[in-house]
Design a protein around this nucleic acid. Structure first.
Length: 275
DNA sequence: CTTGTACCCTGACCGC
DNA sequence: TGCGGTCAGGGTACAA
């Protein structure tokens, strides 16, 4: 589900609310959303009573840092979502409540996940550090230059779209924003990643940043499931230029947008003006 | 090492 | 109205 802009929107909504709070009790309704080790029962036991240091994001992960040497890594995957309040804000929307975290201010952090592909993992700082080390650069941070992107794409024969989705190469991009960035930079998603010229890499680099920043400004994209913490939809879906527009005229050249399958996921692009 | 495929799960939608 | 097939913002395990 959510890609960098959506996950970052959630982080911004929750960070100030959660930091400094203590988690008094935890209820896990769907055990399979807790990834072992340590397993659901131990997870409840070890997270209950802990105080939250900060609430961060890396790639598409949310990180609930606990005081002491541990953190809860949250993956929303496709349908995971949060709400914060004294009661379930919208029972009609939260039909697959998977976990609840009661806070020391009387409010509860609710986690709902229709498909249960997302989940929680309690990690030591050392375990997280080894996971973190394998993730690619954050595209919105200073260090993400065109040269860094060029290095991530170099010598790769896989299609550039697939490489952009590989979190070890660039962190945070998913199916929507990879397609949008390739459209904005007029690059054919089927091109071998390593075949891009320096000028093309620069175009792609600028497009990735501009697309993500624009999406962040519009609180992300709500295609079907994603909601911000207060339940509101993103607004970027109205600004999508290729994703989900199969058969519609290209906004640049009016030729029909086509959909192909790459690495098992659909890619929308304009064969007439993306080269 | 790189690359592709299957799979986890539910629900919405489409054609018959 | 029902049924089967397909698809969905992701990531991981495993095979080649």
């Amino acid at each position: 589900m959510p890609e960098l802009p959506e996950v970052e929107t959630i982080r911004r909504d929750l960070a100030a609310e959660l930091s400094g709070r203590a988690i008094e009790t935890v209820r896990v309704h769907q055990p399979d959303i807790v990834l072992p080790p340590p397993g659901p029962a131990a997870f409840v036991d070890r997270v209950s009573g802990r105080r939250i240091g900060s609430f961060d994001r890396r790639a598409k992960y949310l990180l609930l840092r606990l005081l002491g040497d541990e953190l809860v890594q949250v993956q929303l995957r496709m349908t995971g979502r949060f709400a914060l309040g004294t009661s379930l804000p919208d029972p009609e929307e939260f039909t697959h409540l998977a976990a609840e975290f009661d806070l020391d201010d009387g409010r509860t952090l609710f986690y709902d996940d229709t498909r249960r592909l997302g989940g929680f993992r309690l990690l030591s700082s050392a375990d997280w550090a080894s996971i973190e080390a394998k993730l690619g650069p954050e595209p919105l941070e200073e260090g993400f230059t065109a040269a860094v992107l060029a290095a991530a794409l170099a010598d790769r024969r896989a299609p550039v779209k697939n490489v952009l989705l590989d979190q070890r190469r660039v962190a945070g991009l998913g199916n929507i924003y990879a397609a949008e960035a390739l459209f904005a930079s007029r690059l054919d998603p089927r091109r071998a990643a390593g075949s891009l010229s320096a000028e093309e890499v620069e175009r792609l680099h600028d497009a990735i940043r501009a697309t993500l920043l624009d999406a962040l400004e519009h609180a992300g994209t709500t295609f079907s499931d994603y909601r911000a913490v207060n339940g509101s939809s993103g607004r970027f879906q109205d600004r999508l230029k290729v994703y989900g527009r199969e058969g519609s005229p290209c906004l640049r050249c009016a030729e029909p947008i086509v959909r192909i399958v790459q690495a098992g996921r659909s890619t929308c692009f304009c064969p007439s003006c993306q080269h």
